[in-house]
Design a protein around this nucleic acid. Structure first.
Lengths: 276, 276
DNA sequence: TGAATAGTGTCTGTGAGACAATATTAT
DNA sequence: ATAATATTGTCTCACAGACACTATTCA
């Protein structure tokens, strides 16, 4: 027990911060984007993919495996500041959508020592990025399959292709919270499969009741493109009229239009802000 | 830069974990419940209040101020384990609804040293608690007023009564995320006003699309009581028929009933699980 | 009897799902 | 002309909001 001190200042002056065993914290960011790939058929629209930025580790631990961009949180910076620092290093962009996701803190999640991971989700419009990534970073398209029991994500960057499997177990009757357990993972470092799965889930949910999707869009876009973004993230087709009804109040039509194939040109729209 | 090692084992054997300046982590829990207080009028139902458990600090820092139950996270336990440990200490209960909320990590949030707080929300049915709390713990009824710009919470434990004010600033156009800043706080330690406000918000949101409310209920309850719980947390009156329609599929009527005043007795219901 | 809560019936308007129909382009 | 996307119209059904009405109890 503490001795009695006359005042808080007195107490702080005598405080011995080495009393407890300390730990380290890293910040790991699931940077998501939507990638487009050309179709064979000149009439068709570009294919879109929900994608995540991974970095190949060039040092131990988990050398030569892929991981989320991240880094140690400095003793004099917040995790959000650290996340922005990592984001700037990785993308050269500011004003990126960034949201704290979850703090992963399994005792054995890092083989070096006790390191907890304060994870973040970021959304970027790939059009804003120049394609010159660090040579050890790469965008992976994600093919997501999810049901009550498990999540399967196929990751593909054009050269490497691998799956991660995560088992879901319901935490309690009253909610839809699941405990995630890695069932299969050969290529990703640490517990990053969990981070990616949690991040996907967070964005999926937010898509339904917020306008986060617009963080993935360029300034001008067609409603078809926007709908594609919703569809690849939600993993299902949407009905055109319903989608347009919902989105109508959030966008404004411009007089620009895009002509890009053997079909009717589409008007370009711009994000207008929530509701009114 | 690291030297080159022949293998991961080699690397780990030589790893010097003292390279980085480390930090401490605490776990703080916003334990919420719904308290009933008798009405003057024998006909009326008990008044209900959304309430939070606070502990009076008996040592520095923030001596004699109120704070959320919490404690340091051990080097060999996860934050969830630590939270359960704190919860058991504080309530003597197991199987309590517990959910990670947010990691607060302002550099100056603790005057002693760099300590981050991994915060949790817990929901308990006060009926399951015996009333013998530690003498330094106390339930505070919360009166919540919120608008676009600020949150005001009045806290009252029957002896002490005080307000906290929090300013909300929208983080971005695309979502409803706000940055919280403490505007007024005289009685609560650390940044716990933020934790409480965030916790209230989390539960408010979850109330709308999950069944978390049932974690605040005893096994048998009337629909009136259940509706009261929704009403005090959401801070608005609900229409009886609409409420019953929504809740109908989630509860089952029992043959028990409760007679408690100058009005028609009500049937007791039981939680049945989500949807079907 | 009256005040209070318990519980049900029903009307109406909104909005999502579904499908049909029209418009426009490059090949 | 045709395949593809763009865009709009409309029907229906489910459901939430609103309000009215009945039931039952205790002082």
């Amino acid at each position: 027990m503490d001795k009695d001190y006359a005042s808080e200042e007195e107490f702080l002056k005598n405080y011995d911060s080495s009393k407890f065993e300390k730990l380290s914290a890293t910040v790991d960011i699931a940077i998501f984007s939507v990638a487009s790939s050309k179709q064979d058929n000149y009439r068709k629209l570009n294919n879109k993919h929900f994608s995540v930025l991974l970095v190949k580790r060039n040092r131990y631990p988990f050398k030569d495996m892929w991981c989320l961009p991240g880094g140690f949180m400095g003793i004099d910076e917040t995790s959000e500041e650290a996340a922005k620092r990592v984001l700037a290093r990785e993308t050269n962009l500011k004003n990126i959508y960034l949201e704290q996701l979850y703090t992963f803190d399994d005792v054995k999640r890092d083989p070096r020592m006790r390191i907890i991971s304060i994870s973040y989700v970021a959304l970027v419009d790939k059009n804003r990025l120049d394609d010159t990534l660090f040579d050890n970073a790469s965008w992976f398209n994600m093919e997501i399959e999810e049901n009550d029991k498990e999540i399967k994500v196929n990751l593909d960057n054009g050269e490497e292709n691998f799956d991660i499997f995560i088992r879901k177990t319901l935490k309690e009757l009253t909610t839809d919270r699941y405990k995630y357990t890695i069932k299969k993972n050969e290529k990703l470092a640490f517990d990053h499969p969990l981070t990616i799965a949690s991040g996907i889930n967070r964005i999926k949910n937010k898509l339904e009741y917020t306008d986060v999707a617009f963080n993935l869009m360029p300034e001008y876009f067609t409603l078809g493109e926007l709908q594609q973004v919703y569809e690849v993230i939600l993993g299902k087709k949407l009905l055109d009229p319903a989608f347009r009804r919902i989105i109508a109040s959030k966008v404004e039509k411009t007089d620009k239009e895009r002509i890009d194939g053997g079909h009717r040109p589409s008007k370009l729209y711009r994000y207008r802000g929530k509701n009114l």
